[in-house]
Design a protein around this nucleic acid. Structure first.
Lengths: 349, 349
DNA sequence: TTGTATGCGTTATCAG
DNA sequence: CTGATAACGCATACAA
């Protein structure tokens, strides 16, 4: 990318060239070295000299170029956060936790929103190879990334957040206890008297999704039919509509959706088919996004500590990345919590 | 900040030192210049030479250090987005628009989440002075920032998103049509038959809030009592609770909240006081965040094009910032839309 | 078609 | 207490 290829159009105010450390040094009649030390305090400077330098710094509005500083230092104090969709409340909370942790450690955070687009993801992962960021918190929520990650994982500071990538061991990972979440839901529905359920999962190859489903089956103990979705509201809607169309009568009395969004899609589809929640069918989500408690009926769901996942992953990562180290494998499992609300009840019959 | 002050603990895998352009040049038996040109294509290179270089590049996994490139080029292709709270759906959507625009133009986006904390805001604004970012999209949603901004606005590429800062003219700004939104609400309530309303505003000094209120008054034409809040759910709750406590009987039949969050707070407070929405009181919000359509009752509100505001502000800003120019004053007003749902009805009287 | 020398702005090293 | 010099890694003007 070339700066100003055709010349700046007339009338544009150009950013005036900022003062450099040399300018300050010249104006204060000292060496750049001294200016640097006045500002950093890394070695003693005569008070008189220091005062003179500071005055020039103020007058010229000098601020050290962080770019040059980083080049010399070998690190940037910037960390990336790769997520599929910031407008999904779960990832927004995760991002908030990541940003907080980064800020606390003196880091800035680059938002890498991929929209599930592999090309976009590639471009962002490139930032770590070009050493523009010191590390990457990876929360892609989409499976195809494995190959790309494999090459990076051993050589660069990367942390997995929320989602472990199947086949990729040896990573630093912070995740909610998906399996426990699944078990909580299974227990809850079983205790209510449900015996046959429809499970709407996330994409194949996502460990979180698998873990939830497996915990659920284990605790539910009844019949479970599975349908594979993609975490979007539309897919929840479609899967349930298809399911209803496929069979004469709905034999499942409960639906366990892979996330709240899909649960809402499912509820919409049920409504359109004339089925009431929870009277005819109980529905459970996962995540406990804000909407869950405000919607009607309020959604029974599993609260995932999105903020903590983001915060933990970032804090752990930076502990290593800040020293130029690749984090060793370690797992941080955060507790989840069942939120029983109004979308689940005993089966009608 | 010093890298690795105490020496890296034993057992830590350090990031191996990446290949530089010199390493590649040496291994391919050419000059760094040639390597540079093979990669950039900015001048012809003999196919044989180029092939050799490319092979070495692959073998060493060489990726140009973007830091050094930026230092030499004088710009970073990074833009900042300053917002108060990414977990607020409005700002999450705005961020998504900003990120999309940035990505389309080859930029990365640094998320500056301030939590309304002036110190944090200062730190982030410093990034623009240290030239780590080429520009800043400013959507602080909080008034105190004026002084800080003033110094920057004329000299650095900054765009205001959603919120203009009172007293700061001459800026590039993209905003929703707040006044029209207020008018829409005023008309709607008047047409329903309301004559006396409570307006819950945002913080003093926010032009968006003022504009909404003024549009509202103008179109409503009835009595309006104003209470000042801070855009948070809790403040909506508190203001309404206080309002109810202050007077014997609730004489307002409608509430216009400065945003959806405050509207939900208001509804909660009304419920606690035994008042039903919309039977006893109509409530209108602003923003149309996702919850608004899913809550019960579904909230009548004004849809703000958050994504477009973020996208427009960023795209416009980068048009200048990418060429090292300060954007001239210009205003981009985006249309809003009244969403009539179930939280408004004729007054009971 | 290729290479040499220089500079981007800073900090670390070494010398005084 | 202070300064000259080199180096970070790259791109470019100039030279051949």
């Amino acid at each position: 990318m070339t700066r100003d290829p055709g010349g700046t159009p007339p009338g544009w105010r150009s950013v005036r060239k900022p003062a450099s450390i040399k300018d300050v040094a010249a104006a204060a009649d000292v060496s750049p070295t001294t200016v640097s030390h006045v500002l950093s305090g890394r070695r003693p400077v005569a008070e008189e000299t220091a005062a003179r330098v500071r005055s020039v710094v103020n007058r010229l509005g000098y601020v050290p170029a962080s770019l040059a500083r980083s080049l010399q230092a070998g690190f940037t104090s910037v960390v990336g956060l790769l997520i599929p969709d910031i407008s999904n409340a779960f990832f927004a909370d995760l991002a908030k936790g990541a940003e907080d942790a980064a800020h606390d450690l003196g880091y800035s955070l680059i938002l890498c929103n991929t929209e599930f687009d592999p090309e976009r993801e590639d471009r962002y992962l490139g930032m770590i190879r070009s050493r523009f960021i010191d590390g990457m918190v990876y929360a892609a929520g989409s499976p195809p990334s494995r190959q790309r990650l494999e090459a990076l994982l051993g050589s660069f500071p990367i942390a997995l957040a929320d989602e472990e990538v199947e086949g990729l061991e040896g990573a630093l990972i912070a995740t909610a206890d998906h399996e426990a979440g699944g078990r909580f839901v299974g227990n809850h529905l079983r205790e209510l008297g449900h015996r046959r359920a429809l499970a709407l999962t996330g994409p194949r190859g996502l460990k979180s999704s698998t873990a939830r489903a497996s915990g659920f089956r284990q605790a539910f103990r009844g019949d479970v039919v599975e349908r594979i979705g993609d975490f979007k509201e539309s897919s929840g809607h479609r899967l349930v509509a298809e399911f209803l169309a496929e069979q004469r009568n709905l034999d499942a009395t409960a639906i366990f959706a892979a996330n709240d969004l899909m649960a809402f899609g499912a509820i919409a589809a049920l409504r359109e088919a004339g089925l009431a929640v929870p009277r005819d069918v109980s529905v459970v989500g996962f995540d406990d996004i804000r909407v869950a408690s405000l919607s009607s009926p309020a959604l029974t769901t599993v609260r995932q500590p999105a903020y903590d996942v983001g915060r933990t992953a970032t804090a752990q990562l930076l502990q290593y990345a800040a020293r130029g180290a690749v984090p060793p494998a370690s797992r941080h499992t955060l507790p989840v919590e069942l939120q029983v609300r109004d979308s689940t009840a005993q089966p009608a019959r």
